[in-house]
Every structure is written in structure tokens, then in C-alpha cells.
Amino acid sequence: MANDIAVVIEHLEGKVADISFEMLGKGRELAKASGGQLLALLLGHGVKGLAAELGCADGVIVSEHETLRHYTPEAHKQALAAILKARAPRVTLVANTAMGMDLAAGLSGSLGWSLCAYCRDARLTDGRLTAVSQIYGGKLLADADVEGPSTILSILAGSFPAEAGKAAGNPRVEEVPPPPLDKPRIRFKRLIQPEAGDVDITRQAVLVSVGRGIQSKDNIPVVEELAQALGGALSASRPIVDQGWLPKTRQVGKSGMTVKPKLYVAVGISGAPEHIEGMRGAELIVAINTDPNAPIFNVAHYGVVSDLFDVIPLLAEKLKASK
């Protein structure tokens, strides 16, 4: 119905992603403001059992089909478009993840509904929707008045507490088969698991993480020294891995690992949302960056605005001397 709030449930290999619970929690709040119901949209094959975990919702719409067994943007978008078109909810929340990105913008494009991406918050006041998007690499927040009777919001992971969406309940389950997709133009081939063998950065108590501020591969030993002095491991932002300076296993963030060490030292890392997503749970965060406005300082506990090459070697030396 026109007042409902829909949440697209993301799951992989039988596990509901945390972001789905974050969105359910937020969706509950929005549904209260809109006076509608909270609907969880669950797509896949043999996934009906997962509905039991979605107790926060008033209703779960399950769409099961062989073509939805593995995620493909095409099949999932088409199935969602059919459901959304029929129900026309006031707001649809989609995760701003690798899977959700294609769905959010794809649905906006095919349904002609407004879209606000990279949302950190949303409010419904007297029927009017305001969306807060985090843009410019996390440097600015944009509040926007959103037009249209139905809107799609893509939500950044870590924006809302997941706990709020884990409420127990007994939602009504409704099965809706997807429209046929006779000639899929996107075909799932296989899942590729990450190579094991290297240090598991998710199990380290101390991580020293290096970003593009390091400038060249030859400078990596500068941070490696610090990691050693702290008895921790070296991790990195994505560009360091893309350059081939450190293996993929060391990448922290959205498309890397989510880490929760006791100490996380971010060296020359700007703190893009995709990076912060993977490390905001660290107990103590120290950041070193030449840019006083770097977003990393918004999540760090201690910050040093300085050239890493002036501070890091000195710090490593002092730590070693103190042992």
C-alpha cells in the first residue's frame, strides 16, 4: 500500500546480511511515521526459512524461483520490480552493497521512482520524506527533500543499529512467484571464495592499516616497522591492494574484510565510507593524515594531522625502545 515501507533483504549462502536488520530497524521507525506496514522482500530459492528471522516486519513477501537461486542483478531486479509495482510502497530500502547497488538504481530507472543513494538517515514528517546522503568520499552530508509518491533509498551499511531489526515476531508470509524470465541475459557461473593462507586480519588484536598516503610500494616498510613494533599485522585500504602492493587478504572495508581489532592505526587513509564500513567497530582508532578534514578523523579516537613520514618512523622507534 501507499503507506508501506519495504525492505529488500540481502542474504548470501543462507545467511541474512546484517545490513538487512539495520534496514528493518529503520523501516520500523519509518512505518510508524507513515502509518503503514513494514514489508520484508525475500528473494531466492529455498529461502523461505529465513522469514523466521525477519520478525521485525509485519509481512514477508517471499519470491522463490530457480532463476533466483543465485543473485543476478537482472533476475532479482525484475522480480522486485513486479512486487514493488503492485504494492507501490512509500519508501523502499535497499542496501548500498555490491548486490544492492544494481537493484536500487536499476529499480529507480525501470520504475521511474526517485532515488537517493548512500543514505545514512531518512525521516518522514507529515508525509514528506527527507533523505540524508553521505557524499564526496564521506566529506559532506546532503539532506534532500524527496519528490514522488514512491522512493527508493540505498542505505550505507553501519548507519543504523542492527539490533533494532532483530526483534522477534510472527510476520505474515505471503508467496509471490516472480514473472517468468525466459532468456536471462545475465547467467550466474560460480562463486569464488577468497584465497586463504595469508594472515587472517579479522583475528588480529592490532592492525596498522596503510592507505594511498604512503605513495609508493617502496614505502610500505615504514608502516610495516610500526606494525612490528606494536606486535600487530599490516592491513590496507583498497587502492593499496588494487596497485598490488599488498595481497587482497589484507584489505579492510566494504569489498574486503570487516575487522574489529583492539587497536587500529590508519596511516594515510582518507576514511571513505567504504573503508570505514570495515573498521568502525575497532575499539581504539588512531589516524594519521595530512588533511585535517579527512573523514577518518570522524571515527578515530585520536588523530594526528601530520606527514606520516615525520611521525610513523619516530613512533615505531620509540615503541621499540620502550620494549
Binding site: W113, K139, A142, D143, A144, D145, E147, G148, Y302, V305
Partner: peptide, 21 residues
């Protein structure tokens, strides 16, 4: 079609901002 209009653009309010040494 329908879009949205920015009503406010600002740096994030940083309650938990780092203590700068």
C-alpha cells in the same frame, strides 16, 4: 521523472570526532 532537491549540504556533525594531538 521525480527527483530530489538538496536542502542542506554540510560537513558531518562530529560528536565523536578524534582528539587531535
Amino acid at each position: 521523472g521525480a527527483g530530489s532537491t538538496v536542502s542542506r549540504l554540510a560537513k558531518p556533525e562530529t560528536g565523536g570526532r578524534a582528539e587531535i594531538l
